[in-house]
Simulated scan of single mutants.
Amino acid sequence: MTDLILHHYPESPFSEKVRLMLGAKKLAWKSVHVPRIQPKPDVVALTGGYRRTPFLQVGADIYCDTALIADVLEHVQPDPALYPLPLKGVTRIFAQWADSTLFWAAMAYSIQPKSAAAMFPDEATAQAFLVDRKAMRTNMTQLRAADATSAYRSYLRRVAHMADEHDFLFGAEPCIADFAAYHPLWYTRRRAPVMAGILQATPSLLEWMDRIEAIGHGVSDTLSAEDAIQVAAQAQPLAAGQNLLVDSAFQDDHGIPLGSRVAITAESFGAEPTEGELVAATRTHYSLARTDDRAGAVHVHFPRIGYVLRKADGT
């Protein structure tokens, strides 16, 4: 198999989720650091427009969204399992809640004026980051700080009840639920330490976080963005059914046949479209074929859940 190349940056919470999953599965990977804010020309060369962080590259196949990346890693290395069979459904549902509701409460609580000094080197950098993220939230309503604080406290207590019972949230071993719940709390604890006092009321949760942190990130080597683009240019995207996504049967919920020119956007945060030829639409994911002057022919993959498929003309 071609190298796993993770495009990320150190402070990204969703990147921390993937780094820990790579560590749990003891997978070697290549590390490409991307900018925190626009412009991101090297990112767009591979994704065609999608600019959320992180994304995973395997040759000329680009996997967007950590939910889909988790499926890829599970296929590459099934053991230890992210989705333990007796709990496969409930851990997925919990992870979806953690990646959305819990995450946004944690972010609205953690990113406040008094935490900015620890997060950013100067006021100009802080403002540029906030302006960039505001533009990505076009279709979202952000919680006010006080409301986020109340919600976050409640969510922490609820997750702590799970940590009281086991070493990890659903048993003796970590699963997708642990990695999804951990990364928003990691952001509070490690990226906004002045705000981390909220975690002290749930000591079992802190102990659980220590166990997750001890998993580590596995073994990685640094790769430049230009070299990653060259990897794509020198490879060919894999056909549906031969890539790292196990399902390939066409599921038509839109009346859009394969081969159509389409655009895919996120439902809410980061709704920049990626356009291309629809080459797969299965029960779990979409795949678009596109060509870039630098990266050549690539396939860009998205999960169905959380993304909107339309014809390129907007219909």
Rank of each mutant, 00 (worst) to 15 (best):
V279F: 12
V58Q: 03
L85N: 13
L169M: 04
P121T: 01
S15N: 05
L46R: 00
G197A: 12
V194Q: 15
A95C: 06
A233Q: 06
A45M: 07
Q96N: 05
Y152T: 12
L245W: 03
I198N: 08
G270W: 07
V72H: 00
I198L: 07
L46F: 01
A240Y: 02
T47H: 05
T149E: 13
P174I: 01
D42Y: 02
K30S: 09
P113T: 00
P78G: 04
R52A: 11
A181R: 01
S115I: 01
W29T: 03
A118F: 04
L143D: 04
K25M: 07
R189T: 02
T274L: 06
T291F: 05
L6K: 06
G49C: 07
Y50H: 11
F269G: 00
E275D: 09
L82N: 00
A295T: 00
D99L: 10
T265D: 07
M140E: 08
T282M: 05
A240T: 15
D293E: 09
P184T: 11
A106F: 05
L205A: 09
Y152A: 14
Q96I: 11
S150V: 06
P41A: 14
C175P: 04
Y307I: 06
V34T: 15
W186Y: 06
V43Y: 01
L85D: 15
W186N: 06
T138F: 13
G241L: 04
A295Y: 04
P86R: 04
E207L: 00
A239C: 07
T91I: 09
I5T: 08
L245V: 08
R290V: 02
A289D: 08
S31N: 14
K88D: 10
A280H: 10
T274F: 08
L20W: 05
T91E: 07
G197L: 11
H183P: 05
S287Y: 01
E165I: 07
A151H: 12
A146C: 03
A312F: 00
V159P: 00
V34A: 12
H285W: 08
P80L: 01
A45D: 08
P13F: 12
A67T: 15
M107S: 11
Y63C: 06
Q251N: 12
R19K: 10
H161N: 14
A135C: 14
Q77H: 06
S154K: 12
A235S: 14
N243D: 15
V58H: 01
I256E: 02
L102S: 02
P10Q: 13
A28S: 14
V246S: 09
R92Y: 04
S110W: 06
A151M: 14
A124D: 08
L6M: 05
K134P: 00
L223V: 08
L27W: 08
